[in-house]
């Protein structure tokens, strides 16, 4: 019986640990963690910042395989949280999301449905008048664009910010090859890492237009190599050191293993995505923010999106000293652009 008592006592002590979240009624300094359950997955949303303006920027992280909180590391996040409430959401199978559901639930349509449920929960929690702004970076741009192509879902969103978003993987790969070629030629001319650029250019010449779709993974890898060269030669700003304090809610091992599995499950579906032709279906206010030197997701995609969306209110900005993550390499200007945009959302 003694042992049973000890077990009971231990469980009692542990149960005290479970009181781990609390509602912060003060909207001007939100710091909430809630989970959203949909189709066998529980996904956390970390809500931080100033909700008194009733503007909620729902951040769709990159990857797939990333997590929401890695977007809270930079100076830009700190500044944006003074103006709006940022919602750092871990998508299905990534970050600290939990599920033991079947593999066939890991697909873009399911993730778009998850996002729909997140928005409904946020509206329920913070009021129907709360404005929902989607901000998708990289893969988040893919998911956000896919979500907005559905007219009913688009009605849940007040504005769309796409940051170096990959809404057309085939075109993105073709443009990456062109960028490596043209940027490389320029960099060789000014004697910046000439040997490395030449090797990259030589590699791109081996890819024929018909075979691009079979090399999306390799092209992505070479594009990152090109960005590394640009950073090394100080053509673009470096991301620099950031505090890891905001990653505390994250278990890095869990996030890594989950992200890797989800990324692998989605890969086949992602590499076929082409949404340029459907961009006209988007008619809410849009802001496209792109690094001028983004070899991974070419600025040509921003140009296409800006021209093709049907929105009356639309803006585009190219960051002169940035590649794939302008929010980290030019944080002040990034904040300025987002701040100005959210103020004009009707």
């Amino acid at each position: 019986m003694k042992l049973l008592n000890k077990v009971f006592l231990t469980i009692l002590v542990l149960s005290s640990f479970f009181i781990i979240s609390c509602d912060d009624e003060n909207l001007s300094s939100l710091s909430d963690i809630i989970y959203i359950r949909n189709d066998k997955a529980d996904m956390p949303a970390y809500i931080h910042g100033n909700g008194s303006n009733q503007i909620f920027v729902v951040l769709l992280h990159g990857g797939p395989g990333g997590n929401g909180l890695e977007y809270r590391l930079g100076k830009y996040a700190e500044e944006l949280e003074k103006e709006v409430a940022m919602v750092y959401w871990d998508q299905r199978g990534q970050g600290m999301a939990q599920s033991n559901g079947p593999k066939n639930l890991t697909n873009i349509e399911q993730m778009a449905e998850d996002l729909e449920k997140l928005l409904l929960v946020l509206k329920d929690r913070y009021g129907p008048e709360a404005k929902m702004v989607l901000m998708g970076h990289s893969w988040g741009g893919t998911l956000g664009t896919y979500f907005l192509l559905d007219e009913k879902r688009q009605q849940l969103v007040d504005a769309w910010i796409e940051v170096d978003g990959a809404h057309d993987i085939i075109k993105l790969s073709e443009e990456s090859l062109l960028m490596i070629d043209s940027l490389g030629t320029n960099q060789i001319r000014v004697e910046n890492s000439a040997k490395d650029w030449q090797a990259l250019i030589d590699w791109t010449h081996k890819i024929t237009p018909d075979s691009v779709k079979h090399f999306t993974g390799e092209i992505n890898q070479k594009s990152w190599e090109a960005i590394a060269l640009l950073e090394e030669d100080e053509v673009i700003n470096s991301i620099g050191h950031t505090s890891l304090e905001e990653l505390r809610p994250l278990s890095l091992i869990t996030s890594y293993f989950s992200g890797l599995a989800t990324s692998n499950l989605l890969f086949e579906e992602i590499e076929k995505i082409e949404m340029t032709e459907q961009l006209h279906k988007i008619n809410i206010p849009c802001l496209f923010l792109w690094g001028k030197y983004d070899v991974v997701v070419s600025p040509q995609l921003a140009k296409d999106a800006f021209e093709l969306v049907s929105s009356d209110l639309k803006f585009v900005h190219y960051f002169e000293k940035s590649a794939h993550s302008p929010m980290s390499t030019e944080p002040d200007l990034f904040v300025e652009k987002v701040r100005a945009f959210v103020q004009v959302i009707p």
Binding site: I34, Y35, N38, Q98, K117
Partner: peptide, 9 residues
Amino acid sequence: SFLPETYEV
């Protein structure tokens, strides 16, 4: 696992 506030639609 026990999660904090969790909502479903």
